[in-house]
Design a protein around this nucleic acid. Structure first.
Lengths: 197, 197
DNA sequence: CGGCCCTTTGACGGACGTCAAATAGCGTGG
DNA sequence: CCACGCTATTTGACGTCCGTCAAAGGGCCG
């Protein structure tokens, strides 16, 4: 699927159990007044949502940030496999747990953290998730970062204008470099400190 | 367990798979700087967390709001039962899905809604959940509401002072009556409007 | 009756949003 | 290859929502 395209609209029915192979996807909620909140980013290797195994209903607008390829499994088939293989079920349970934990952490961040903390934590979270996939380069710490500033704003509950100020502050403080859809963490300790983490 | 007592501290190990029989519980995250965020309220009939079936690790501080009684099931036993009875698994999957959905909705509210909306939505959410259990009286719409204003503040990411202002505004607008740990919704339509819902 | 916790109220401050305009990138078509 | 238009970034001035601080009532329990 092409970048910046809607993959699935809100309240639609998923065609099966999709897994992201390449690219980044945003799961976005839209309110009446037009405000948007990104509930999660899906990275390569991520399942769209574990709940789709049992409820084919998509809760959020799914939007391709980059070009995306995904593979769609058959629900019934996969479900049968899950019950047949004990180890596979545990893997699935872990993914499930991880999803919920991410959502709860997001709520805590949005409820009780300041703007800089939120942005710093978003960057660090994405970094950690990409690290598990071997998608982060070491010395310097570098990874693909296709998010626009409005993605960051929608994910952190801020405005693009304010996010922009925070990013330039981070740059000026020598914490990160960000250009060409690529992010370099120049001062990991400093960034973690900004994230209170 | 007695009201206002800690049931389980953060990062502890649950003794099994607990179900709340009576009373209200708050699942709370605490940050270094002392700020708190309530991630969910547990009402009578709620499972503490579906993930405890597979990972006995408690992520949040569990605090009794009222006196609480709960029943603790054996993990292994329940897990076996789950795979044996097909219908039971679906019920479980629904509870799982519901938990995640609640967490995501909370994130959206905290990220993109104003203070009044958040408070109104909290009240309506609790009302809907209590309704399913038959714990809401009709004409007038009335239910037990044991939350202190600081609970509301911690759940909505606000301060007690500001929450207080909102509640008096709701009272002055004739939307609710709140006293003696009991809440009457006097103008459901108005409250829903305040919640943009 | 006294102490503690909770609620209520007011004045003030700050973090973040809004509005606006200029600049910079980026893709598309001639 | 250049020109054009759209979209994204950047910057500044100003506004507002909500937080902070402080103090004065209420309620409840010992």
């Amino acid at each position: 699927m092409r970048a910046r395209r809607l993959i699935w609209p809100e309240q639609s029915v998923a065609p099966g159990f999709p897994l992201i192979c390449e690219g980044w996807v945003a799961a976005t909620a839209t309110l009446q007044n037009g405000r948007r909140q990104i509930v999660s980013f899906l990275l390569p290797g991520d399942v769209v949502s574990t709940k789709l195994l049992f409820h084919p209903h998509i809760d959020f607008r799914m939007e391709a940030i980059t070009d995306v390829t995904c593979r769609i499994f058959d629900r019934a088939e996969l479900r049968a496999l899950l019950f047949a293989q004990p180890g596979l079920f545990d893997t699935f349970a872990s993914a499930w747990t991880e999803e919920k934990s991410q959502a709860e952490q997001l709520a805590v961040d949005l409820g009780r953290r300041g703007a800089e903390e939120r942005v710093a934590r978003l960057i660090l979270n994405l970094m950690r998730r990409l690290e598990k996939r071997g998608l982060v380069g070491r010395s310097p710490i570098r990874f693909d970062f296709p998010l626009r500033q409005y993605h960051i704003a929608d994910a952190t509950g801020l405005t693009t204008v304010y996010v922009n100020g925070i990013l330039t502050a981070f740059r000026d403080a020598g914490l990160i470099e960000l250009s060409e859809r690529s992010l370099v963490v120049k001062d990991l300790g400093g960034l973690k400190r900004a994230a209170s983490d």
